[in-house]
Amino acid sequence: MRLSARTEELLQVVTVLDNRIDAAVALEFKENMRQITENAPEKVLLDLSAVVFIDSSGLGAIVATMKHLSPGKTLVLAGLNGPVDRVFRLTRMDSVFSLYPTLDHALQDQF
């Protein structure tokens, strides 16, 4: 499960480089996210634009990531492709997370 991260002053952008977050990698994703966001600023933006498939295990791993962030820190999701967006809406997680169609949309909205 490959991730890349860059941190600006008040924002960390974590980009998923693989195209699936499924049961085969969900635990690894969760653990990598936990490590990568350990010293994150108050906003973490997860860029999912490379991801074309997510299942409920992957969704659970993203929920776990959000729950693990320290109080006061938020996880924002960007670059949701159709199949990923659908899973968030069908499980009503679109009411829990801020979802943006692209990274640019998300970045514009943060400042």
Partner: peptide
């Protein structure tokens, strides 16, 4: 059944979505 009232995001379940997705589709 897939019921979720207004909840604290930090108390959200991390699983149990699978059957809901199957039935929805």
């Amino acid at each position: 059944a897939f019921e979720r009232g207004p909840t604290d995001p930090k108390s959200l379940p991390e699983g149990g979505f699978g059957w809901h997705l199957i039935h929805s589709l």
